[in-house]
Each structure stands twice: as C-alpha cells, then as structure tokens.
C-alpha cells in the first residue's frame, strides 16, 4: 500500500521575513506508522506539517505523499489522502453548524446528499459526539470542538492523519478520551505535540526537530531516555519516565 507513505527529502523553507523554518528535513514514514514530531517552540513543527498537505509548498527539496510529489497540480488528491487537524479548532470549524462542518469535505468531494448525511452520522458516532450534530459550532466545549474537527477530517476517509498539537487545550479527561480515540484509528498518524506522555501512548516512533533540522528520528522510548538530546531540544522527560523523588 504505497499510497500511505509520507516522505520529506531535504526540505527547506524560509519565511518571507527571512526566518528560516526548515533547513533540510529528511524522513520517510510508511503505511500504518504512528509518528510524533516534537521540538521546541519555533523548531519548525507546524511549518513541516503544513507542507504535508500542501498548504505550503517546498521552496527546496520535496515532499512525497504516496510516492508522488506534492505539487500544485496534485493538491486535490494530496488533500484527500492527508487529513489535517489544525491546532486551533476555531480555525477549522468554519461552518455554522456541526453538521455542515463535517459535511463540508464530503460535499466538496461530490458525494450525493444522502451519502453525505450517512457519512456525517457515521464519523460523528465514531468520535463519540453524535449528539452534537445539529448544534452550532460556536457553542461547543474545547473537547467537543476537537472531536468535531477530527470528525470533519475523517469524513473524507483520508489515509493519513496529521494532527497539530491535538490536545493543547484539553482538560485531562478530554485529553485521555482523545488518546483513546486516536488509538482506535488505523491510519498513518503524524502528530506534532509537546505532550511526550501522549507520545508514549500513541507513537512508537518520534522525530525530534531542532532549529529546522531532524535532530533525531527513532524509537520514542530511546529518544526520551537521551537526556542530552532532550535538553538540546528544549524538552523534558515524559512524567512517567521520571524517577519519583525519595
């Protein structure tokens, strides 16, 4: 199943104001993998993620999704393959009601109305918020907004899920529910986060970004045991790997 592959080849990106964000990023993520992208603020996580569905196109190097390069002419397919959950659900839920938001993708894919409706019901049930269907997007809790954002992305059945800090604004229980939910997905998952404990739950593999470069790429447990690497990348050992005092 080669179409689930995500690959970056010496990816470079500099913002217009001259700030370099990515300075030669290389990795290859294969079918069904669940990979965390971690790093300090400003390490280039979000910029990298935005390359994966072609919101930003590479200035140098390339991104390949399913063995095809991400270029302007292929954006439509790329965006169907790569579902992106944005950091701020308020940016993502732009339609007035939950139903319309989740239906947005399927409608744009040209699904007939009946199927759209069935699809919306299905994904809302899948993320456990079927009861929100008719509600207005403005009046949801952070956890509900997050769930709906994910449903909206699942609605077009992407092969690859990209999540940008999916639990940054959730309370502990909502966070736990999200982790359990993400565990059930069989997609290839790429998750940018500061929550290293969640990484331990979800991602066997971790890519560490430091100043726009891959500082480490490998087994999450091993990476989180490397104190020097963690220090260099402004990270801390996940709580459950820290020794209890006394």
């Amino acid at each position: 199943m080669s179409h689930h592959i995500v690959e970056a080849r010496s990816l470079h990106f500099t913002y217009r104001d001259g700030t370099p964000a990515l300075r030669g990023v290389d990795f290859r993520i294969t079918h069904g993998e669940s990979v965390a992208v971690v790093g300090a603020n400003g390490a280039g996580k979000s910029t990298l993620l935005r390359h994966l569905n072609g919101t930003v196109l590479p200035q140098r190097g390339e991104v390949r999704v399913g063995d095809f390069p991400v270029i302007k002419d292929r954006l439509k397919e790329v965006r169907r393959t790569v579902g992106m959950v944005f950091q701020n659900p308020d940016d993502q839920l732009f339609m007035p009601t939950v139903f319309d938001d989740v239906a947005f993708g399927p409608v744009n894919c040209g699904l007939p109305p009946d199927e759209v409706e069935a699809r919306v019901d299905e994904v809302l049930a899948q993320v456990g918020v079927a009861y929100l269907k008719g509600r207005s997007s403005t009046r949801l809790s952070a956890g509900e907004k997050r769930a709906v954002s994910i449903a909206a992305v699942l609605a077009v059945s992407p092969d690859i899920l990209v999540l940008d800090e999916p639990n940054s604004d959730l309370d502990p229980r909502a966070r736990r529910r999200l982790i359990e939910l993400l565990k059930t997905f069989k997609h290839t998952k790429i998750i940018a986060t500061h929550d290293l404990d969640m990484v331990l739950d979800l991602c066997p593999r971790t890519i560490v970004l430091v100043e726009g470069k891959v500082a480490a790429d490998g087994n999450s447990l091993e990476i989180f045991s490397d104190e020097q690497l963690l220090k260099k990348s402004n990270l801390e050992k996940p709580l459950r790997m820290q020794k209890y005092p006394g």
Binding site: R79, R80, F86, D91, V153
Partner: peptide
C-alpha cells in the same frame, strides 16, 4: 489565512 487553509485542506474549490 488559517481558515482559508483549513478550507483548502478539505477540498474547497
């Protein structure tokens, strides 16, 4: 800007 990219990401044409 962010909303626009969210729309594009879901096939807005």
């Amino acid at each position: 800007d962010r909303i626009h990219s969210a729309m594009l990401a879901r096939g807005f044409d």
